[in-house]
Amino acid sequence: MYTETSTHILLTGGQGKTSSRIAQLLHGQGYLIRRAGRSISKPGNEQVGEHAPFDWFDDSNHDDLLQDVHAVYLVAPASMHPEEVMIPFIRRALDASVRRFVLLSSASIPENGPVFGPVHRYLREHAPEWAVLRPSYFMQNLTDARHGHGQSLRQSGHLYTAAGDGKIGFVDADDIAAVGFHALTDKEPHNRELIITGPESLTYDDVAGVIRSVTGLNAKHIRVTPEQLTERHKAAGLPESYAEYLAGMDVRIRLEGMEDQVTDTVLRVTGREPRSLEQFILEHRHGFHLINQEVR
């Protein structure tokens, strides 16, 4: 149990896929948590730590959020230029004597890339202690009804991508959170980027095949054009520039293989093997059986 300090770890994106899981891990080890986000926990959902309202684009309470904080987990807003609000926030945190920062980025986006890249670079150049998590695509996207894949599986049993035969090292958010927990709490700072993948690299055809074999759902991968995928993202509420960028990432997966990699990060950092997609779907098969009933 952690008992050395009364200061908090601030988790932005407090109800998100990784922040919520990191919160549970931190709480289990006795850390004080401040979960910051625009959404609040729904009635009946377990809430650990204190919750504070937070909006990247409204800095009126940012100084208050950073009081008595020694580490921050950074989850960017859905924007092509999150550095415009994130770097000023990081400066405030540094002025408030926060020492450690962990950024959630993407395996697709290096330090010299767009979106998260400028924030990645700023942390490396200015933060005393830092880590950048660069996970591959989340397995939870297949089960989350708010995500395009989870939604389309519920509506039709299909996965729509412009990725073709490109491969991806799909990773469980639990494994990402476990790495994030260590990056936030290990005595020695990581001071590096951490590319996080599952144990294998798969095409979307492979993914549909695993879903079929494990659940009986007649899942199919439907190949669409980047333009069609952009329209799907926009229909889901994403800004046009961000929707176009995400569709373009599918093209790069297909043409450049930019997500076709497998790393040992989960094992090296946490001491356990990452969960495979088959294991993940097997553990969530009840949800897929419900989908099967909906799309028949």
Rank of each mutant, 00 (worst) to 15 (best):
T270H: 08
Q261F: 11
M249S: 02
D260Y: 05
G30L: 04
L255C: 08
P199F: 13
V224N: 15
G117M: 01
T5K: 13
V75W: 03
S6Y: 06
V214H: 11
G150F: 05
F280K: 10
S105R: 00
E46R: 08
I22W: 07
P189R: 05
S97H: 11
R121P: 02
Q155N: 13
E240T: 08
N61A: 10
G117F: 02
L194N: 05
R100W: 01
V179N: 00
S152P: 14
E278T: 14
F181K: 06
R91H: 14
E278S: 12
S105A: 08
R124V: 03
E188R: 04
A163L: 09
A183E: 02
G44M: 09
D59N: 10
F181I: 06
V119M: 09
Q24E: 06
M80G: 05
R21N: 14
G150T: 10
Q47P: 03
H147D: 15
Y160E: 06
R99F: 05
V72G: 01
S19H: 14
S39V: 05
R275F: 07
Q140L: 07
Y73C: 01
A36W: 12
N191C: 15
D165I: 03
I40A: 11
G198H: 00
F170R: 11
P77S: 10
T225V: 12
D264S: 11
R192F: 01
L25G: 03
K220M: 12
M258E: 14
L255V: 12
L142N: 11
G164M: 02
H182D: 04
Q228Y: 04
L103D: 00
R92K: 07
G164L: 07
P88F: 15
I291R: 13
Q47I: 03
M139A: 07
R296Y: 04
V48S: 05
G209C: 10
H149V: 12
R100S: 06
V210D: 04
G113N: 05
M249K: 01
N45T: 09
A145K: 14
D250V: 07
K167S: 11
N218Q: 10
R121I: 00
P239H: 01
R100C: 01
P43H: 14
T197I: 11
L255S: 09
D95L: 08
R223I: 06
G148R: 13
L246R: 08
P88H: 15
A93G: 08
H81S: 08
D206H: 05
R21F: 09
R38Q: 10
V214G: 08
E240G: 09
N61T: 12
S201W: 08
P118Q: 07
D68P: 03
S105C: 05
A36M: 09
Y73N: 00
S39P: 00
F280I: 07
P88M: 13
F288L: 12
E193N: 01
E231C: 08
L25K: 04
A127D: 02
